[in-house]
Simulated scan of single mutants.
Amino acid sequence: MNKEIKIQHGSGGSLTSKLVQNIFYKHFNNPYLLEAHDSARLPGVHGRLAFTTDSYVINPLQFPGGNIGKLAVCGTVNDLAMSGARPLYISCGFIIEAGFSMELLEEIVRSMAETAKEAGVIVVTGDTKVVEKGNADKLFINTSGIGEIPAGIEICGQNARPGDAVIVSGTLGDHGIAVMLQRQQLQFQSSVKSDCAPLNGLVSDMLKECPGIHVLRDATRGGLATILNEIASQSQVGIELAGSEIPVKEEVQGICEVLGLDPLYLANEGKLLAVVPEDKLQNVMRVMHAHPYGRDAKVIGRIVDKPEGKVFVKSAIGGRRIVDVMTGDPLPRIC
């Protein structure tokens, strides 16, 4: 087998067939995919469907805690989970630059397969394109996903109500800092790793305890600040955060201070935000703390009546600062 991707690997001929057989079928092995139809033929589901798609162009392709493949599966699984859906099936499309390492491609595909197995989803269809050297930046991946929303689940950004608790599932900014340090080769002695993880198991446990969760979001590009502002605007409520309760690792906070960054705006790939009725808070926190991806969950604030559409942080001495929507992008190609 070739050590590098050649332009002929995207031609649809014998090299394409060998690439599909030796890497994609090898790691995504399942009967739906191996039927090799133009469309995957899948068992029917009952109730409502959730469908999502996203493209991943992260630079660098590998980073502490993950790579573009793991990120692609986690991102799609998490988008489905935030609607309350049980993720079922994933597609994946690869745009590969000629000259790309075959060994690295297989490593990325293997990590996708391992992450899909952890999340309980199946990669059932896909596509491979190869472009000339210089016409792409190594590798881009598109994934789409289908999930089933159980009856009685109504999660939406418009559902936040005054008195609701605001929860995050763990520390903020880990992914953004891990990728930034890897990309810029900054001279920090750092052990920070990306938090990249599939969250559907955590969400499933939360919904079993409280089917009436009002809002779920994963705090990816734009970070926690951006999604909080979206929720405040959609629900026409205010969101009051307790600054001392927002969880950030000491190492991440220190790097942010040196670089002039705010952890509230940094991307996360394995953290969720939940808006939960106050009377269900303790039960939800109990199941979150029992799950590996929620053990550091904290209540960071409350939904309030006013100011409508605004997010603010309250300090320990009673001061308030507005948390605005992010302008610009502190780190392009973060996912």
Rank of each mutant, 00 (worst) to 15 (best):
E97I: 05
I149A: 01
S55G: 11
P198H: 04
Y56F: 06
T128A: 01
G260R: 06
T76S: 13
R86Q: 13
E107V: 13
G260F: 04
I58F: 13
F28A: 04
I334K: 07
N268P: 07
G147R: 02
I231V: 00
K6Y: 13
A242N: 15
I231P: 01
L224R: 02
V237G: 02
L207R: 09
N22F: 12
F312L: 04
L261A: 10
V311E: 03
G270M: 08
T226H: 15
V166R: 01
S14D: 10
K117L: 12
A136T: 09
E114K: 06
A113E: 05
S101N: 09
L264F: 09
G66A: 02
Y265R: 13
E154N: 10
P150K: 02
E106W: 01
T52N: 10
H27S: 08
Q158V: 03
A297P: 05
V275F: 02
Q182C: 14
V179F: 11
P330E: 14
H289R: 07
G10Y: 01
M326Q: 15
N268K: 06
M102C: 06
M285H: 06
S169F: 05
K6D: 12
Q282R: 07
E114I: 06
G126V: 05
I322P: 05
L71Q: 10
R41Y: 10
K306T: 07
R302P: 00
K249Y: 11
Q21G: 03
G212R: 14
I167E: 01
I239K: 03
D329I: 15
R48I: 13
G47W: 06
F100Q: 06
N29S: 09
G69N: 00
I317Y: 15
K249N: 12
L105R: 00
K129C: 11
R161Q: 02
N22Y: 11
F51L: 05
S55T: 11
V109E: 00
G66R: 00
S169K: 13
D296Y: 04
D164G: 02
D279H: 14
P43K: 04
C156S: 02
G173A: 07
G120Y: 12
S144E: 00
I96Q: 00
A165R: 08
G12K: 00
K208N: 14
V284Y: 00
I146Y: 04
E118F: 07
I153D: 00
Q189A: 15
A36V: 03
V203Y: 10
H46R: 14
Q187R: 14
G163L: 03
Q158E: 06
I153V: 05
S190T: 07
K208I: 10
G176N: 12
H46M: 14
H291V: 06
R48C: 14
A113K: 07
M206I: 15
L19E: 03
I153M: 08
K193Q: 14
V237I: 01
G223E: 12
E97H: 03
M112T: 04
A178M: 12
D127P: 04
R86W: 13
T226F: 15
G170N: 00
G328K: 15
S144P: 00
K129A: 09
E257W: 08
C74E: 03
C210I: 14
S91N: 15
R41H: 11
A297T: 10
V121S: 05
L272Q: 08
A72Q: 08
I255A: 08
V77P: 05
R221D: 12
V313S: 01
L266M: 15
E250V: 13
F94T: 05
C256N: 10
D127Q: 12
K3Y: 07
S190G: 10
G176Q: 15
